[in-house]
Simulated scan of single mutants.
Amino acid sequence: MEPVERFISIEQARNAAVAWLESRNVVFGPYRKVEIGRLGVLAGHEVGVSAAEKPYWRLRLDFDPIKGPHFNAETGEGAKREKQAFSFPGDEALIKKLALSRRPR
């Protein structure tokens, strides 16, 4: 399991996840793909973005019972892949509310 950092708000968690990716030379330019959730209440909803070309990176919203609501950030591929989770207060009901407010582009 990847390291988890805990924050007091969704905004702080999101900003920390973006800063973590930027510290690893990720550039949030126009060339990216929208990530669609595949499991649970996030299935079929927009959950984040990923690189459309190399180098690979991804940022997405997620929920699991241990970490709670969180952003998953990852960069690299294979053995060099780095991952980090950035959690914030809430429960699955919050994730469902966030999922319902987002429609795939």
Rank of each mutant, 00 (worst) to 15 (best):
I95P: 01
A13V: 04
R103P: 03
S23M: 07
I10L: 09
Q84E: 10
D64T: 12
K97S: 14
R105A: 14
S9M: 13
A17H: 00
P104M: 08
G76L: 01
N72R: 04
I8W: 06
G78Y: 10
R24P: 05
E5P: 02
L21P: 02
N15T: 11
L98A: 06
R102V: 02
G78Q: 13
R32D: 09
R6D: 09
E77H: 01
S50N: 13
N72G: 10
E77T: 15
I66P: 00
I10S: 00
S9T: 15
E11M: 03
V18T: 13
Q84L: 09
V47Y: 04
L21N: 05
N72K: 07
E11R: 00
L59K: 00
R102A: 15
V27I: 15
N72C: 12
M1W: 07
A93T: 06
R60L: 15
Q12R: 14
A85G: 08
K96I: 06
S101K: 10
F7L: 08
W57C: 01
P55A: 14
S87L: 04
A43N: 13
E46M: 15
G76Q: 07
N72S: 09
A43R: 15
A93D: 08
G29Y: 09
F28G: 09
Q84V: 07
K83D: 01
R24V: 05
V27G: 02
D62E: 14
G76A: 04
M1C: 11
K33L: 13
E53Q: 07
P30Q: 10
N15S: 09
E35C: 13
P3Q: 11
E92W: 03
L98T: 04
L94H: 05
K54E: 14
R105N: 14
